[in-house]
């Protein structure tokens, strides 16, 4: 009785397990097929888009624009040019999105969570790249300008290089901030650089100015020393003028009769 019943329940359980397994296979296989199909379609789209973008960018002259920013030199040793890189980036971006969609088939799972994070981060990476490219273009333009304008000076080239390095630095820091490398890293770096420049300026410029400033002070003091007797004499002459005018001007009627001699010098004579 008991064993029979047990067998029955067992067989029932067994059948249910089997059908459960079948069930899950039946639901898994379509999902898996969908997964593969999505991947395949995504991959094809990615390929096509990458090709098209590469062609369009080359046609538009993107490489030449970027070249001005000096990015070309950075890429000189790699087998890619700038448009290749953009195309590759797009390719992988589309692949990532495809993967995300494909894994979405399985419902919520850790892999798609990671992928979602990466995909959400992609636009910021693009912006960061744009910032670097733009900063590079500005930096080289500024360098050209400064070097051209100050070319006759011995330090014109140095100033140009400094300016471009500075702009590059700002651009890179902005890009790092953009892709989420924490400001806790970049801001201290920026502050350190600025403080270093400040320190160099203070010691170099200030130290160099000690002697000129000294001689300037000497000159000022000498001049003051020379000026004091002059100023004193001038003030005395002024006083004499006032006295004189007060004395003689007080009786204007007299001046005709006694013109010159009427105003004898007050002291002396």
């Amino acid at each position: 009785m008991t064993p029979g019943k047990g067998a029955v329940t067992l067989s029932v359980d067994f059948g249910q397990g089997l059908s459960n397994a079948w069930n899950s296979i039946a639901t898994f296989v379509p999902k898996f097929v969908a997964f593969l199909v999505i991947l395949l379609i995504g991959w094809i789209i990615a390929k096509v888009v990458a090709k098209v973008v590469d062609k369009v960018l080359e046609r538009v002259g993107f490489d030449r624009v970027v070249e001005r920013g000096g990015v070309k030199r950075m890429l000189a040793n790699s087998k890619y040019d700038a448009s290749d890189i953009i195309a590759k980036l797009l390719y992988y971006a589309i692949l990532l999105i495809t993967l995300q969609v494909a894994f979405g088939v399985w419902g919520p799972n850790p892999v798609s969570a990671v992928l979602t994070g990466i995909v959400a981060w992609l636009p910021r990476a693009v912006v960061a790249i744009v910032i670097v490219v733009v900063a590079g273009a500005i930096a080289s333009a500024v360098k050209d300008l400064v070097t051209g304008a100050l070319g006759s000076l011995s330090y014109g080239r140095l100033l140009g290089t400094l300016a471009s390095v500075f702009i590059w630095g700002l651009g890179i820091i902005a890009a790092l901030n953009q892709i989420g490398v924490a400001t806790t890293v970049t801001t201290p770096v920026l502050i350190t650089v600025l403080a270093t420049i400040g320190g160099i300026a203070v010691v170099g410029v200030g130290g160099g100015l000690v002697r000129p400033m000294q001689s300037r002070w000497d000159r000022w003091l000498n001049r003051a020393e020379d000026e004091i007797p002059q100023a004193k004499a001038s003030a005395e002459a002024y006083q004499r003028g006032r006295e004189d005018a007060a004395r003689t001007g007080a009786r204007p009627a007299a001046h005709r009769a006694t013109t010159g001699p009427a105003t004898p010098p007050p002291m002396g004579t």
């Binding site: 002024y238 003028g241 006032r242």
Partner: peptide
């Protein structure tokens, strides 16, 4: 000196 003197007269 002359300027000082003249200024004195003018100011008066």
């Amino acid at each position: 000196l002359l300027a000082g003197y003249a200024q004195g007269v003018l100011d008066h």
